[in-house]
Design a protein around this nucleic acid. Structure first.
Lengths: 108, 108
DNA sequence: ATATCATATAAGCATATACTTATATAATTG
DNA sequence: CAATTATATAAGTATATGCTTATATGATAT
């Protein structure tokens, strides 16, 4: 059984607008860092630090391919996170709330 | 549709050990402030401030009876909170993790 | 090898958070 | 009425958080 304080620490990570959007987007597919930087109109270090926190608590995992690092969900053992993400809107809705369209995103 | 940032703000409130325990206990029944003070071995203002935050975001509601104020869940319209609390252990488990037994609690 | 691109880390800073103690408010009791 | 009990609020403080800018690391391409 997972500790209450451990669950709270994980939920705290969901309690940030940017991280919650990141996780919701990751429901659909893996994304690389530069895509998030474009989408959120936020500095690259800011995104990187959010992802590091998520990785540190085992909520996402990374997958390096070439110079890109792709992130994906790692919540098979965390039913309460799955339960939240199940209730979240789809990527399109998230992206429209961020006032961006996915078609603009290019990392080369 | 609820705003992403609004959902994040609500989840942030769940991301605290004390508040998460409070909400999990409230699944079972309503509790009054003094019970929480006993259970959490924390100052009365600390508990009161946690409850105020939860009330401010409409996650709990209060019910005054005599000199006591009872709190209960108000999450019918917040499926993502219901989803989290559904995954939480029962009151007995929470209380044992707090190293207290419910039988000790007396407010008079 | 050097230049470029993608990502990570470090340091600094402004604000948010979760407590504390002291005090106020309100209901209950003698 | 005064004393007690339950709760709320205010003010202060230490720590956490989320950004910033600067810099480091590492892969790719010329």
């Amino acid at each position: 059984m997972e500790e209450l304080s451990n669950i709270a620490d994980n939920l705290k990570l969901l309690g940030d607008k940017t991280r919650l959007a990141i996780l919701t987007l990751l429901k659909e597919r893996e994304w690389c860092v530069c895509e998030f930087v474009e989408i959120f109109d936020m500095s690259q270090p800011a995104i990187s630090q959010h992802l590091r926190k998520l990785k540190a608590q085992g909520i996402v995992k990374e997958n390096k391919r070439g110079q890109w690092v792709y992130y994906s969900l790692h919540i098979e053992d965390k039913s309460y996170i799955q339960a939240v993400l199940d209730q979240m809107p789809d990527s399109k809705t998230i992206l429209s709330q961020l006032n961006k369209t996915q078609t603009n995103i290019v990392c080369e």
